[in-house]
Design a protein around this nucleic acid. Structure first.
Lengths: 232, 232
DNA sequence: CATGCATATTGATATATGTCATTATCTTTG
DNA sequence: CAAAGATAATGACATATATCAATATGCATG
Protein backbone atom coordinates (compact mmCIF):
# COMPACT_ATOMS: atom_id res chain seq x y z
CA UNK A 1 0.00 0.00 0.00
CA UNK A 2 1.49 3.30 -1.09
CA UNK A 3 0.55 6.70 0.23
CA UNK A 4 0.49 9.78 -1.97
CA UNK A 5 -0.99 12.87 -0.46
CA UNK A 6 -2.17 15.93 -2.32
CA UNK A 7 -1.89 14.63 -5.87
CA UNK A 8 -3.37 16.48 -8.82
CA UNK A 9 -6.93 15.38 -8.05
CA UNK A 10 -8.82 17.48 -5.56
CA UNK A 11 -11.96 16.97 -3.50
CA UNK A 12 -13.91 19.24 -5.77
CA UNK A 13 -13.10 16.82 -8.56
CA UNK A 14 -15.02 14.09 -6.75
CA UNK A 15 -17.63 16.50 -5.56
CA UNK A 16 -20.00 16.04 -8.48
CA UNK A 17 -20.60 12.41 -7.70
CA UNK A 18 -19.97 12.41 -3.99
CA UNK A 19 -23.25 13.90 -2.84
CA UNK A 20 -22.47 14.33 0.81
CA UNK A 21 -19.61 16.73 0.16
CA UNK A 22 -21.75 18.92 -2.05
CA UNK A 23 -23.04 20.38 1.21
CA UNK A 24 -19.64 21.83 1.94
CA UNK A 25 -18.57 25.28 0.82
CA UNK A 26 -15.20 25.74 -0.97
CA UNK A 27 -13.45 26.79 2.24
CA UNK A 28 -14.61 23.66 3.98
CA UNK A 29 -13.63 21.46 1.06
CA UNK A 30 -10.19 23.02 1.11
CA UNK A 31 -9.75 21.99 4.72
CA UNK A 32 -10.45 18.40 3.76
CA UNK A 33 -8.30 18.66 0.67
CA UNK A 34 -5.39 19.85 2.76
CA UNK A 35 -5.59 16.98 5.21
CA UNK A 36 -6.78 14.08 3.10
CA UNK A 37 -4.48 11.19 2.27
CA UNK A 38 -4.79 9.25 -0.92
CA UNK A 39 -4.03 5.55 -0.67
CA UNK A 40 -3.88 2.68 -3.15
CA UNK A 41 -4.78 -0.88 -2.22
CA UNK A 42 -4.14 -3.98 -4.26
CA UNK A 43 -6.90 -6.55 -4.59
CA UNK A 44 -6.93 -8.72 -1.50
CA UNK A 45 -5.33 -6.13 0.75
CA UNK A 46 -6.89 -5.34 4.09
CA UNK A 47 -7.96 -1.71 4.38
CA UNK A 48 -8.79 -1.85 8.05
CA UNK A 49 -9.47 -4.58 10.51
CA UNK A 50 -12.29 -5.07 12.95
CA UNK A 51 -11.15 -4.14 16.44
CA UNK A 52 -8.51 -1.59 15.42
CA UNK A 53 -8.84 2.16 16.06
CA UNK A 54 -11.11 3.99 13.66
CA UNK A 55 -9.24 7.17 12.79
CA UNK A 56 -10.45 7.99 9.29
CA UNK A 57 -13.49 8.53 7.25
CA UNK A 58 -12.92 6.81 3.92
CA UNK A 59 -14.01 7.81 0.45
CA UNK A 60 -13.61 5.13 -2.19
CA UNK A 61 -12.61 6.61 -5.55
CA UNK A 62 -11.61 3.50 -7.47
CA UNK A 63 -12.08 -0.26 -7.22
CA UNK A 64 -14.34 -2.26 -4.93
CA UNK A 65 -14.29 -3.11 -1.27
CA UNK A 66 -16.03 -5.75 0.80
CA UNK A 67 -17.13 -4.98 4.35
CA UNK A 68 -17.41 -7.97 6.63
CA UNK A 69 -17.93 -8.84 10.24
CA UNK A 70 -15.56 -11.43 11.58
CA UNK A 71 -17.75 -13.75 13.60
CA UNK A 72 -17.33 -17.09 15.29
CA UNK A 73 -15.37 -20.10 14.06
CA UNK A 74 -13.49 -18.13 11.42
CA UNK A 75 -16.77 -17.35 9.72
CA UNK A 76 -17.29 -13.97 8.09
CA UNK A 77 -20.47 -12.14 7.30
CA UNK A 78 -20.21 -9.74 4.37
CA UNK A 79 -22.50 -6.80 5.08
CA UNK A 80 -21.88 -4.90 1.87
CA UNK A 81 -19.81 -4.23 -1.22
CA UNK A 82 -18.72 -0.63 -1.76
CA UNK A 83 -18.05 0.92 -5.15
CA UNK A 84 -16.88 4.42 -6.19
CA UNK A 85 -17.82 7.03 -5.25
CA UNK A 86 -19.12 5.87 -1.91
CA UNK A 87 -18.05 6.22 1.70
CA UNK A 88 -16.85 3.80 4.25
CA UNK A 89 -17.41 4.71 7.88
CA UNK A 90 -18.40 2.65 10.83
CA UNK A 91 -20.67 3.25 13.78
CA UNK A 92 -17.59 3.37 16.00
CA UNK A 93 -16.81 6.96 15.00
CA UNK A 94 -19.13 8.38 17.62
CA UNK A 95 -19.01 5.53 20.10
CA UNK A 96 -15.66 3.94 20.83
CA UNK A 97 -13.42 4.85 17.90
CA UNK A 98 -13.07 1.20 17.03
CA UNK A 99 -13.84 -0.53 13.74
CA UNK A 100 -16.76 -2.89 14.14
CA UNK A 101 -16.15 -4.62 10.84
CA UNK A 102 -13.24 -5.18 8.49
CA UNK A 103 -12.76 -3.82 4.99
CA UNK A 104 -10.83 -5.52 2.21
CA UNK A 105 -10.19 -4.47 -1.38
CA UNK A 106 -11.61 -7.04 -3.80
CA UNK A 107 -10.20 -5.11 -6.76
CA UNK A 108 -7.26 -2.75 -7.05
CA UNK A 109 -8.64 0.27 -5.26
CA UNK A 110 -7.99 3.85 -4.38
CA UNK A 111 -9.37 5.77 -1.44
CA UNK A 112 -9.12 9.11 0.30
CA UNK A 113 -8.71 9.08 4.04
CA UNK A 114 -10.08 12.03 5.96
CA UNK A 115 -9.16 12.59 9.56
CA UNK A 116 -12.10 11.80 11.81
CA UNK A 117 -11.64 14.86 14.00
CA UNK A 118 -11.74 17.22 11.05
CA UNK A 119 -14.79 15.37 9.84
CA UNK A 120 -16.53 15.74 13.18
CA UNK A 121 -15.62 19.41 13.32
CA UNK A 122 -17.23 20.06 9.94
CA UNK A 123 -20.29 18.15 11.03
CA UNK A 124 -20.66 20.45 14.02
CA UNK A 125 -20.26 23.56 11.93
CA UNK A 126 -22.40 22.66 8.95
CA UNK A 127 -25.80 21.22 9.68
CA UNK A 128 -26.57 20.44 6.04
CA UNK A 129 -23.48 18.28 5.98
CA UNK A 130 -24.54 16.72 9.25
CA UNK A 131 -28.01 15.91 7.99
CA UNK A 132 -26.59 14.35 4.85
CA UNK A 133 -24.34 12.23 7.00
CA UNK A 134 -27.22 11.05 9.17
CA UNK A 135 -29.15 10.29 6.01
CA UNK A 136 -26.28 8.06 4.90
CA UNK A 137 -26.07 6.29 8.23
CA UNK A 138 -29.83 5.78 8.22
CA UNK A 139 -29.84 4.40 4.71
CA UNK A 140 -27.19 1.91 5.71
CA UNK A 141 -29.31 0.89 8.63
CA UNK A 142 -32.34 0.32 6.41
CA UNK A 143 -30.33 -1.78 3.98
CA UNK A 144 -29.06 -3.67 7.00
CA UNK A 145 -32.59 -4.51 8.08
CA UNK A 146 -33.32 -5.92 4.66
CA UNK A 147 -30.28 -8.16 4.74
CA UNK A 148 -31.24 -9.12 8.26
CA UNK A 149 -34.64 -10.35 7.13
CA UNK A 150 -33.19 -12.03 4.08
CA UNK A 151 -30.68 -13.99 6.13
CA UNK A 152 -32.94 -14.93 9.02
CA UNK A 153 -36.23 -15.63 7.27
CA UNK A 154 -35.42 -16.88 3.80
CA UNK A 155 -34.13 -20.25 2.74
CA UNK A 156 -30.98 -20.66 0.71
CA UNK A 157 -32.45 -20.14 -2.77
CA UNK A 158 -34.05 -16.86 -1.66
CA UNK A 159 -30.83 -15.66 -0.11
CA UNK A 160 -28.73 -16.49 -3.16
CA UNK A 161 -31.32 -14.76 -5.32
CA UNK A 162 -30.97 -11.66 -3.16
CA UNK A 163 -27.20 -11.72 -3.53
CA UNK A 164 -27.38 -12.05 -7.31
CA UNK A 165 -29.88 -9.22 -7.61
CA UNK A 166 -27.79 -7.07 -5.28
CA UNK A 167 -24.67 -7.64 -7.35
CA UNK A 168 -26.43 -6.89 -10.61
CA UNK A 169 -28.39 -3.86 -9.46
CA UNK A 170 -26.29 -2.26 -6.78
CA UNK A 171 -22.70 -3.31 -7.30
CA UNK A 172 -21.94 -3.94 -10.96
CA UNK A 173 -25.02 -2.31 -12.46
CA UNK A 174 -24.62 -4.62 -15.43
CA UNK A 175 -25.86 -7.93 -16.76
CA UNK A 176 -23.91 -10.07 -17.41
CA UNK A 177 -21.39 -9.05 -14.81
CA UNK A 178 -17.97 -10.37 -13.91
CA UNK A 179 -17.11 -10.45 -10.23
CA UNK A 180 -13.88 -10.87 -8.28
CA UNK A 181 -15.83 -12.33 -5.36
CA UNK A 182 -15.05 -15.96 -4.64
CA UNK A 183 -17.71 -18.59 -3.99
CA UNK A 184 -16.74 -18.33 -0.34
CA UNK A 185 -17.53 -14.61 -0.52
CA UNK A 186 -20.94 -15.31 -2.03
CA UNK A 187 -21.52 -17.77 0.80
CA UNK A 188 -20.43 -15.14 3.33
CA UNK A 189 -22.93 -12.72 1.83
CA UNK A 190 -25.79 -15.17 2.14
CA UNK A 191 -24.93 -16.79 5.45
CA UNK A 192 -24.38 -20.33 4.31
CA UNK A 193 -21.55 -22.76 3.59
CA UNK A 194 -19.53 -22.43 0.39
CA UNK A 195 -20.78 -25.83 -0.78
CA UNK A 196 -24.40 -24.85 -0.31
CA UNK A 197 -23.91 -21.62 -2.26
CA UNK A 198 -22.34 -23.56 -5.14
CA UNK A 199 -25.18 -26.07 -5.13
CA UNK A 200 -27.88 -23.38 -5.31
CA UNK A 201 -26.03 -21.63 -8.14
CA UNK A 202 -25.93 -24.90 -10.04
CA UNK A 203 -29.65 -25.41 -9.48
CA UNK A 204 -30.37 -21.93 -10.84
CA UNK A 205 -28.17 -22.71 -13.82
CA UNK A 206 -29.89 -26.05 -14.46
CA UNK A 207 -33.26 -24.32 -14.35
CA UNK A 208 -32.09 -21.73 -16.85
CA UNK A 209 -32.49 -18.85 -14.44
CA UNK A 210 -28.86 -17.79 -14.66
CA UNK A 211 -25.81 -18.45 -16.77
CA UNK A 212 -22.52 -19.02 -14.95
CA UNK A 213 -19.09 -19.10 -16.47
CA UNK A 214 -16.40 -19.01 -13.84
CA UNK A 215 -16.80 -15.59 -12.33
CA UNK A 216 -19.11 -14.24 -14.98
CA UNK A 217 -22.79 -14.33 -14.10
CA UNK A 218 -25.79 -13.50 -16.22
CA UNK A 219 -29.32 -13.34 -14.95
CA UNK A 220 -31.46 -14.82 -17.70
CA UNK A 221 -34.84 -14.93 -16.00
CA UNK A 222 -35.22 -11.87 -13.84
CA UNK A 223 -38.86 -12.46 -12.96
CA UNK A 224 -38.24 -15.99 -11.78
CA UNK A 225 -35.28 -14.87 -9.68
CA UNK A 226 -37.31 -12.08 -8.09
CA UNK A 227 -40.05 -14.55 -7.33
CA UNK A 228 -37.57 -16.86 -5.63
CA UNK A 229 -36.32 -13.90 -3.64
CA UNK A 230 -39.85 -13.12 -2.50
CA UNK A 231 -41.11 -16.60 -1.74
CA UNK A 232 -38.00 -17.20 0.32
CA UNK B 1 -54.97 4.68 23.91
CA UNK B 2 -55.60 7.96 25.66
CA UNK B 3 -53.80 11.19 25.00
CA UNK B 4 -53.00 13.63 27.75
CA UNK B 5 -50.72 16.48 26.86
CA UNK B 6 -48.85 18.75 29.24
CA UNK B 7 -49.52 16.90 32.47
CA UNK B 8 -47.70 17.74 35.66
CA UNK B 9 -44.52 15.98 34.57
CA UNK B 10 -42.12 17.99 32.45
CA UNK B 11 -39.18 17.14 30.23
CA UNK B 12 -36.77 18.37 32.84
CA UNK B 13 -38.22 15.75 35.16
CA UNK B 14 -37.02 13.02 32.81
CA UNK B 15 -33.87 14.88 32.05
CA UNK B 16 -31.76 13.28 34.74
CA UNK B 17 -32.08 9.84 33.24
CA UNK B 18 -32.59 10.72 29.61
CA UNK B 19 -29.03 11.55 28.69
CA UNK B 20 -29.61 12.86 25.20
CA UNK B 21 -31.79 15.71 26.41
CA UNK B 22 -29.21 16.84 28.93
CA UNK B 23 -27.54 18.52 25.96
CA UNK B 24 -30.44 20.90 25.62
CA UNK B 25 -30.65 24.22 27.42
CA UNK B 26 -33.84 25.15 29.34
CA UNK B 27 -35.19 27.20 26.44
CA UNK B 28 -34.82 24.27 24.10
CA UNK B 29 -36.37 21.88 26.58
CA UNK B 30 -39.31 24.23 26.93
CA UNK B 31 -39.91 24.04 23.19
CA UNK B 32 -40.15 20.28 23.45
CA UNK B 33 -42.23 20.48 26.59
CA UNK B 34 -44.70 22.75 24.84
CA UNK B 35 -45.19 20.42 21.88
CA UNK B 36 -44.79 16.98 23.35
CA UNK B 37 -47.75 14.65 23.68
CA UNK B 38 -48.02 12.13 26.44
CA UNK B 39 -49.67 8.84 25.52
CA UNK B 40 -50.59 5.69 27.39
CA UNK B 41 -50.61 2.27 25.79
CA UNK B 42 -52.03 -0.91 27.22
CA UNK B 43 -50.00 -4.12 26.99
CA UNK B 44 -50.45 -5.57 23.52
CA UNK B 45 -51.30 -2.27 21.86
CA UNK B 46 -49.53 -1.27 18.69
CA UNK B 47 -47.58 1.96 19.08
CA UNK B 48 -46.73 2.32 15.43
CA UNK B 49 -46.70 0.02 12.46
CA UNK B 50 -44.02 -0.69 9.90
CA UNK B 51 -44.80 1.15 6.68
CA UNK B 52 -46.75 4.02 8.25
CA UNK B 53 -45.49 7.62 8.32
CA UNK B 54 -42.90 8.34 10.97
CA UNK B 55 -43.93 11.65 12.48
CA UNK B 56 -42.64 11.45 16.03
CA UNK B 57 -39.60 10.82 18.06
CA UNK B 58 -40.65 8.70 21.01
CA UNK B 59 -39.43 8.70 24.58
CA UNK B 60 -40.55 5.76 26.68
CA UNK B 61 -41.22 6.79 30.28
CA UNK B 62 -43.01 3.70 31.60
CA UNK B 63 -43.49 0.06 30.62
CA UNK B 64 -41.75 -1.97 27.95
CA UNK B 65 -41.94 -2.05 24.18
CA UNK B 66 -40.86 -4.61 21.61
CA UNK B 67 -39.53 -3.46 18.24
CA UNK B 68 -39.96 -5.93 15.43
CA UNK B 69 -39.59 -6.18 11.70
CA UNK B 70 -42.50 -7.80 9.95
CA UNK B 71 -40.93 -10.16 7.47
CA UNK B 72 -42.14 -12.89 5.18
CA UNK B 73 -44.83 -15.49 5.87
CA UNK B 74 -46.19 -13.63 8.89
CA UNK B 75 -42.86 -14.07 10.62
CA UNK B 76 -41.55 -11.31 12.85
CA UNK B 77 -38.03 -10.54 13.91
CA UNK B 78 -37.75 -8.75 17.24
CA UNK B 79 -34.78 -6.40 17.04
CA UNK B 80 -34.96 -5.07 20.57
CA UNK B 81 -36.88 -4.49 23.78
CA UNK B 82 -37.03 -0.91 25.02
CA UNK B 83 -37.37 0.09 28.66
CA UNK B 84 -37.63 3.50 30.38
CA UNK B 85 -36.06 5.94 29.91
CA UNK B 86 -35.02 5.13 26.38
CA UNK B 87 -35.89 6.44 22.95
CA UNK B 88 -37.59 4.91 20.00
CA UNK B 89 -36.76 6.34 16.62
CA UNK B 90 -36.24 4.72 13.28
CA UNK B 91 -33.81 5.28 10.44
CA UNK B 92 -36.71 6.58 8.37
CA UNK B 93 -36.59 10.00 10.07
CA UNK B 94 -33.94 11.27 7.70
CA UNK B 95 -34.71 9.07 4.73
CA UNK B 96 -38.34 8.52 3.80
CA UNK B 97 -40.34 9.40 6.91
CA UNK B 98 -41.60 5.85 7.07
CA UNK B 99 -41.38 3.39 9.95
CA UNK B 100 -39.12 0.48 9.03
CA UNK B 101 -40.24 -1.63 11.96
CA UNK B 102 -43.24 -1.88 14.23
CA UNK B 103 -43.44 -1.14 17.95
CA UNK B 104 -45.80 -2.81 20.40
CA UNK B 105 -46.24 -2.34 24.12
CA UNK B 106 -45.58 -5.58 25.99
CA UNK B 107 -46.51 -3.99 29.30
CA UNK B 108 -48.78 -1.05 30.10
CA UNK B 109 -46.65 1.81 28.90
CA UNK B 110 -46.37 5.55 28.74
CA UNK B 111 -44.47 7.57 26.18
CA UNK B 112 -43.83 11.14 25.11
CA UNK B 113 -44.17 11.93 21.45
CA UNK B 114 -42.06 14.77 20.08
CA UNK B 115 -42.73 16.21 16.68
CA UNK B 116 -40.02 15.15 14.25
CA UNK B 117 -39.67 18.58 12.68
CA UNK B 118 -39.03 20.24 16.02
CA UNK B 119 -36.57 17.50 16.78
CA UNK B 120 -34.71 18.05 13.52
CA UNK B 121 -34.69 21.79 14.10
CA UNK B 122 -33.05 21.35 17.50
CA UNK B 123 -30.53 18.96 15.98
CA UNK B 124 -29.51 21.62 13.49
CA UNK B 125 -29.19 24.29 16.14
CA UNK B 126 -27.42 22.32 18.84
CA UNK B 127 -24.47 20.23 17.74
CA UNK B 128 -24.01 18.62 21.15
CA UNK B 129 -27.54 17.33 20.89
CA UNK B 130 -26.82 16.21 17.34
CA UNK B 131 -23.71 14.33 18.35
CA UNK B 132 -25.54 12.61 21.17
CA UNK B 133 -28.19 11.57 18.69
CA UNK B 134 -25.66 10.14 16.29
CA UNK B 135 -24.05 8.33 19.19
CA UNK B 136 -27.40 6.73 19.95
CA UNK B 137 -27.97 5.73 16.35
CA UNK B 138 -24.47 4.29 16.16
CA UNK B 139 -24.88 2.32 19.35
CA UNK B 140 -28.05 0.81 17.95
CA UNK B 141 -26.16 -0.13 14.84
CA UNK B 142 -23.43 -1.87 16.84
CA UNK B 143 -25.96 -3.82 18.88
CA UNK B 144 -27.59 -4.71 15.58
CA UNK B 145 -24.36 -6.18 14.28
CA UNK B 146 -24.09 -8.38 17.35
CA UNK B 147 -27.59 -9.71 16.92
CA UNK B 148 -26.83 -10.20 13.24
CA UNK B 149 -23.87 -12.43 14.04
CA UNK B 150 -25.76 -14.25 16.75
CA UNK B 151 -28.63 -15.09 14.43
CA UNK B 152 -26.61 -15.99 11.36
CA UNK B 153 -23.67 -17.82 12.86
CA UNK B 154 -24.85 -19.47 16.04
CA UNK B 155 -26.95 -22.56 16.46
CA UNK B 156 -30.15 -22.54 18.44
CA UNK B 157 -28.70 -23.07 21.94
CA UNK B 158 -26.29 -20.16 21.42
CA UNK B 159 -29.07 -17.91 20.21
CA UNK B 160 -31.38 -18.75 23.11
CA UNK B 161 -28.48 -18.18 25.50
CA UNK B 162 -27.99 -14.74 23.97
CA UNK B 163 -31.65 -13.92 24.42
CA UNK B 164 -31.66 -15.00 28.06
CA UNK B 165 -28.52 -13.00 28.83
CA UNK B 166 -29.96 -9.99 27.01
CA UNK B 167 -33.16 -10.14 29.02
CA UNK B 168 -31.35 -10.52 32.32
CA UNK B 169 -28.65 -7.90 31.71
CA UNK B 170 -30.24 -5.33 29.44
CA UNK B 171 -33.99 -5.51 29.85
CA UNK B 172 -34.96 -6.63 33.34
CA UNK B 173 -31.61 -6.16 35.03
CA UNK B 174 -32.62 -8.81 37.52
CA UNK B 175 -32.27 -12.52 38.17
CA UNK B 176 -34.71 -14.17 38.44
CA UNK B 177 -36.86 -12.07 36.15
CA UNK B 178 -40.48 -12.30 35.11
CA UNK B 179 -41.26 -11.45 31.52
CA UNK B 180 -44.42 -10.65 29.61
CA UNK B 181 -42.85 -11.97 26.43
CA UNK B 182 -44.51 -15.09 25.05
CA UNK B 183 -42.57 -18.13 23.84
CA UNK B 184 -43.37 -16.93 20.34
CA UNK B 185 -41.67 -13.64 21.19
CA UNK B 186 -38.59 -15.45 22.46
CA UNK B 187 -38.58 -17.38 19.18
CA UNK B 188 -38.91 -14.14 17.23
CA UNK B 189 -35.93 -12.74 19.10
CA UNK B 190 -33.77 -15.73 18.25
CA UNK B 191 -34.94 -16.42 14.72
CA UNK B 192 -36.40 -19.87 15.19
CA UNK B 193 -39.76 -21.59 15.52
CA UNK B 194 -41.70 -21.38 18.76
CA UNK B 195 -41.38 -25.14 19.22
CA UNK B 196 -37.62 -25.04 18.87
CA UNK B 197 -37.33 -22.24 21.40
CA UNK B 198 -39.39 -24.22 23.89
CA UNK B 199 -37.27 -27.31 23.30
CA UNK B 200 -34.00 -25.49 23.94
CA UNK B 201 -35.40 -23.90 27.08
CA UNK B 202 -36.36 -27.32 28.34
CA UNK B 203 -32.88 -28.66 27.59
CA UNK B 204 -31.34 -25.79 29.54
CA UNK B 205 -33.72 -26.56 32.38
CA UNK B 206 -32.91 -30.27 32.33
CA UNK B 207 -29.22 -29.47 32.45
CA UNK B 208 -29.76 -27.20 35.45
CA UNK B 209 -28.60 -24.10 33.61
CA UNK B 210 -31.83 -22.22 34.15
CA UNK B 211 -34.99 -22.47 36.17
CA UNK B 212 -38.28 -21.84 34.37
CA UNK B 213 -41.64 -21.33 35.94
CA UNK B 214 -44.16 -20.08 33.46
CA UNK B 215 -42.88 -16.65 32.60
CA UNK B 216 -40.36 -16.47 35.40
CA UNK B 217 -36.81 -17.30 34.41
CA UNK B 218 -33.76 -17.68 36.57
CA UNK B 219 -30.27 -18.18 35.27
CA UNK B 220 -28.63 -20.65 37.63
CA UNK B 221 -25.35 -21.29 35.84
CA UNK B 222 -24.17 -18.07 34.31
CA UNK B 223 -20.77 -19.39 33.22
CA UNK B 224 -22.24 -22.35 31.40
CA UNK B 225 -24.77 -20.14 29.64
CA UNK B 226 -22.07 -17.70 28.56
CA UNK B 227 -20.04 -20.59 27.27
CA UNK B 228 -22.97 -21.83 25.22
CA UNK B 229 -23.38 -18.32 23.86
CA UNK B 230 -19.75 -18.25 22.80
CA UNK B 231 -19.38 -21.72 21.35
CA UNK B 232 -22.48 -21.08 19.29
C1' DC C 1 5.31 -27.54 -20.16
C1' DA C 2 5.07 -29.76 -15.68
C1' DT C 3 4.25 -29.03 -10.94
C1' DG C 4 2.02 -27.40 -7.08
C1' DC C 5 -1.42 -24.74 -4.82
C1' DA C 6 -5.80 -22.51 -4.44
C1' DT C 7 -10.36 -22.61 -5.64
C1' DA C 8 -14.42 -24.85 -7.32
C1' DT C 9 -17.44 -28.86 -7.72
C1' DT C 10 -19.73 -33.02 -6.54
C1' DG C 11 -21.69 -36.85 -3.78
C1' DA C 12 -22.61 -39.20 0.49
C1' DT C 13 -23.87 -38.55 4.96
C1' DA C 14 -24.84 -36.40 9.49
C1' DT C 15 -27.17 -32.91 11.86
C1' DA C 16 -29.96 -28.95 12.88
C1' DT C 17 -34.22 -27.14 12.47
C1' DG C 18 -39.06 -26.68 10.97
C1' DT C 19 -43.69 -28.59 10.54
C1' DC C 20 -47.62 -30.92 11.92
C1' DA C 21 -50.65 -33.13 15.05
C1' DT C 22 -51.81 -33.93 19.79
C1' DT C 23 -52.13 -33.08 24.46
C1' DA C 24 -51.51 -30.17 28.47
C1' DT C 25 -51.77 -25.98 30.94
C1' DC C 26 -53.19 -21.56 31.92
C1' DT C 27 -56.57 -17.50 31.60
C1' DT C 28 -60.54 -15.41 30.74
C1' DT C 29 -65.36 -15.04 30.81
C1' DG C 30 -70.13 -15.99 31.43
C1' DC D 1 -67.31 -23.28 38.67
C1' DA D 2 -67.53 -24.73 33.83
C1' DA D 3 -66.51 -23.76 29.26
C1' DA D 4 -63.88 -21.83 25.80
C1' DG D 5 -59.94 -19.88 23.92
C1' DA D 6 -55.25 -18.90 24.11
C1' DT D 7 -50.69 -20.32 25.02
C1' DA D 8 -47.33 -23.89 26.05
C1' DA D 9 -45.28 -28.45 25.65
C1' DT D 10 -44.26 -32.78 23.52
C1' DG D 11 -43.36 -36.39 19.99
C1' DA D 12 -43.00 -38.07 15.29
C1' DC D 13 -41.52 -36.87 11.14
C1' DA D 14 -39.91 -34.15 7.02
C1' DT D 15 -36.60 -31.18 5.22
C1' DA D 16 -32.98 -27.77 4.97
C1' DT D 17 -28.40 -27.23 5.59
C1' DA D 18 -23.64 -28.33 7.12
C1' DT D 19 -19.82 -31.33 7.05
C1' DC D 20 -16.55 -34.37 5.20
C1' DA D 21 -14.07 -36.57 1.69
C1' DA D 22 -12.98 -36.96 -3.00
C1' DT D 23 -12.23 -35.08 -7.44
C1' DA D 24 -11.85 -31.50 -10.80
C1' DT D 25 -10.49 -27.20 -12.56
C1' DG D 26 -8.00 -23.12 -12.99
C1' DC D 27 -3.83 -20.42 -12.21
C1' DA D 28 0.72 -19.18 -10.92
C1' DT D 29 5.58 -20.48 -10.81
C1' DG D 30 9.84 -22.34 -11.96
Amino acid sequence: MSIISKNNNSCSHCNGKADIFSCLCPTELDQIDAKRIEVYFKAGELIFKQGTPNLHFLCLTKGKVKLYIEGYNEKNLIIGIVKPIEYIFGPGIYVDNIHHYSAMAIEDSQACLVDIDLFKKLMRENSDFMEEFIRKVSLLSIINFEQFISLTQKQMPGRIADVLLYLRDKVYEANPFRTTLSRQDLADMSGMSKESAIRILREFKDEGIIQVNGNEFEILNSEHLSKISQTG
